[in-house]
Structure formats: structure tokens, C-alpha cells
Simulated scan of single mutants.
Amino acid sequence: MLVPHQANLRISQFIQHKFKLTDDQVYNNIQKYGNTTAASIPIALTEAWEKGKIKEGDTVVLAAFGSGFTWASAIIKW
């Protein structure tokens, strides 16, 4: 599961397309909340888990970016 920073849906969809991921492999909630800045990944991660989209043993990739060239990512074995 890819949980990207929820800054822009088009960016998330572009990354999804580049990595050939299905809709079930990427979690987006920007349509519901908008850009919640630094809280976007924790909110999306929690929501995906609560909806059963992330299960024990899954690999979860978190990816964030900010103004300029700032970015960070993490891979978690759930």
C-alpha cells in the first residue's frame, strides 16, 4: 500500500501510473479532507487501517514532499 502525502490528487495519480499501481494499492483521501499539510499521511494511514485496507504483514510505503526539494519516505512492514 502506498500512502502518499495528500497535497494534490493529480500528483498521486501520476505516481500511481508511473509505478503501475492499482487503485487498491494507493490510498488517497484528499477528496475528503483537502491538503491537511503535515497531518496528511498520519490521517490517511489511520483511515486506511481502520477501513481494513492495511492488514498485518502488509508492506506500507509512506512518501511525502514539501516546498522546494524537501521529501521523505519510509517502508513499514505492518
Score class of each variant (00 low, 15 high):
residue 54 I to H: 03
residue 19 F to P: 00
residue 26 V to Y: 04
residue 56 E to P: 11
residue 55 K to T: 11
residue 45 L to R: 00
residue 56 E to G: 11
residue 54 I to V: 15
residue 38 A to W: 08
residue 23 D to E: 13
residue 48 A to Y: 02
residue 24 D to P: 00
residue 56 E to T: 04
residue 51 K to G: 05
residue 23 D to S: 09
residue 19 F to K: 01
residue 42 P to K: 07
residue 28 N to E: 13
residue 32 K to T: 13
residue 39 A to L: 11
residue 53 K to W: 02
residue 46 T to G: 04
residue 53 K to M: 10
residue 48 A to P: 02
residue 41 I to F: 15
residue 56 E to H: 10
residue 27 Y to C: 04
residue 27 Y to E: 00
residue 35 N to I: 12
residue 39 A to G: 14
residue 30 I to P: 00
residue 47 E to D: 06
residue 36 T to K: 09
residue 55 K to A: 14
residue 43 I to M: 12
residue 23 D to V: 04
residue 55 K to N: 14
residue 54 I to C: 06
residue 41 I to P: 09
residue 41 I to W: 11
residue 39 A to H: 14
residue 48 A to K: 03
residue 21 L to A: 11
residue 49 W to F: 13
residue 32 K to F: 10
residue 27 Y to V: 06
residue 54 I to R: 03
residue 47 E to T: 02
residue 40 S to N: 04
residue 18 K to N: 07
residue 28 N to P: 00
residue 27 Y to L: 09
residue 53 K to C: 03
residue 23 D to I: 01
residue 30 I to Y: 04
residue 19 F to G: 00
residue 53 K to V: 07
residue 35 N to F: 15
residue 30 I to M: 07
residue 56 E to L: 15
residue 27 Y to F: 15
residue 29 N to P: 01
residue 53 K to I: 03
residue 34 G to K: 09
residue 49 W to E: 05
residue 21 L to W: 07
residue 37 T to W: 05
residue 30 I to C: 07
residue 45 L to K: 04
residue 33 Y to P: 04
residue 23 D to T: 06
residue 31 Q to P: 00
residue 36 T to E: 10
residue 36 T to I: 15
residue 49 W to T: 11
residue 50 E to W: 04
residue 18 K to S: 11
residue 34 G to A: 15
residue 31 Q to E: 13
residue 20 K to F: 05
residue 18 K to F: 15
residue 29 N to M: 08
residue 53 K to S: 07
residue 55 K to H: 13
residue 46 T to E: 03
residue 19 F to Q: 01
residue 49 W to C: 07
residue 29 N to Q: 05
residue 35 N to M: 10
residue 39 A to R: 08
residue 54 I to K: 01
residue 53 K to T: 02
residue 45 L to F: 14
residue 43 I to G: 03
residue 21 L to Y: 04
residue 17 H to W: 07
residue 18 K to Q: 12
residue 30 I to K: 02
residue 18 K to M: 15
residue 31 Q to A: 14
residue 46 T to N: 02
residue 27 Y to H: 10
residue 32 K to V: 14
residue 29 N to T: 02
residue 40 S to Y: 06
residue 30 I to A: 12
residue 26 V to D: 05
residue 36 T to H: 09
residue 17 H to E: 11
residue 46 T to W: 03
residue 24 D to V: 07
residue 45 L to P: 03
residue 38 A to M: 13
residue 40 S to H: 01
residue 41 I to Y: 14
residue 39 A to M: 13
residue 55 K to P: 10
residue 38 A to C: 15
residue 25 Q to V: 05
residue 47 E to W: 01
residue 32 K to G: 03
residue 47 E to S: 01
residue 48 A to T: 01
residue 29 N to E: 10
residue 43 I to F: 11
residue 28 N to H: 06
residue 50 E to S: 13
residue 36 T to D: 08
